[in-house]
């Protein structure tokens, strides 16, 4: 937050922090509970990553104040996200496109 944050705002924030903590704890319980159902890999992956994504976003948005952050920070982060996706997608798709099919190690 910039210097403009006042004590009053902060008090309001504190209530939000407690609520986010509750949500994070609940989501952790849910993701573990779902894991005990032993779904097959694809739905399990989707559920686990979806919940982890929500949890990560909650932390980033409220604890790290990204929700009210300045433009310059987003400009830096957007490229990081793009290149992270590039790293994942291109590496994995090169794995799937190999001459002679998958080389089973």
């Amino acid at each position: 937050m910039s210097d403009s944050a006042h004590a009053e705002d902060v008090k309001k924030h504190v209530r939000i922090y407690i609520a986010v903590f509750g949500a994070l704890a609940a989501l952790t319980v849910i993701t573990v509970a779902v894991a005990y159902l032993h779904l097959s890999i694809v739905p399990a992956l989707i559920v686990a990553l979806f919940i982890a994504g929500i949890k990560g976003s909650l932390v980033a948005a409220y604890f790290m104040h990204l929700i009210s952050e300045k433009k310059v920070i987003f400009a830096l982060l957007i490229f990081t996200v793009i290149f992270l996706v590039v790293l994942f997608v291109l590496t994995i798709s090169s794995y799937h496109d190999q001459i002679g099919g998958h080389i089973v190690p």
Binding site: T31, A35, I41, A44, L45, A48, I51, A52, G56, V59
Partner: peptide, 10 residues
Amino acid sequence: IFLFPTIYLL
């Protein structure tokens, strides 16, 4: 938050 489900749960 990402390590835990991907390593422990999947």
